[in-house]
Amino acid sequence: MSNNSIIEIKNLHKNYQVGDEIVRALRGVDLTIDKGEFVAIMGTSGSGKSTLLNILGCLDTASEGDYFLDGKNVKTLKRNELAEIRNTKLGFVFQSYNLLPRTSALENVELPLLYNGAVNSKLRRERAEEALIAVGLKDRMKHLSNQMSGGQQQRVAIARSLVNNPVIILADEATGNLDSRTSFEIMALFQELNEKGITIGFVTHEAEIARFTKRNVVFRDGRLIKDMIVKDRGDAKQSILDLKDDDYNFSS
């Protein structure tokens, strides 16, 4: 175990009972992620990416094996301690956004801070606005979640994961519904956050997106089959600039 590791999982299994059948979504995964890493979790649909991410985000528990978060075995933590960790240390972007319906972007982003007694309403508003500006929704703050496009909702969800200044951000297909330009913008944002020292776990099935991260791990049928460092790491900001020329060129 390296001293620098923030996430360490050992022989992790996750089984789902579906009727008489047992679905083995994770079949013995070992993975260590150090502080400051930017990891893309890849694999085909159904390979267990979301399942792993949910466990890493303390939203779900493993059927077997251990998960050490910042040195602590998550198994030993109580519900309220886990809630505390989710509230202050983790930021989670769901595959399906999970915004509160008929609620403004600002209120959606403020939500995690409402559960943090240390943040007063003024600070809460400021930080929510900052987070929305960071994802490029400065002029959409008062819009209701159901009045926004899929990509905008995605960005509200990202802003919500940023608002509590997390140590780790876990994002499940955060660019799944976005065009390349917006995807690059989001990746630029993640790269920027990663520069600041935030550890990022990022599920994607797009190689084009994965090249902006520092490390790619690939899953198949609940097993980790490939773990590699990204060599020619892309610069998302530069990619946006490159796009400029053929912005309206749909042939590319």
Binding site: R86, T88, F92, N98, Y115
Partner: peptide, 16 residues
């Protein structure tokens, strides 16, 4: 229930 799930996921405690 989904809303409750979300609130729990972003750090709401059971008693909240």
């Amino acid at each position: 229930t989904r809303e409750i799930g979300l609130r729990l996921a972003i750090g709401g405690k059971g008693k909240d």
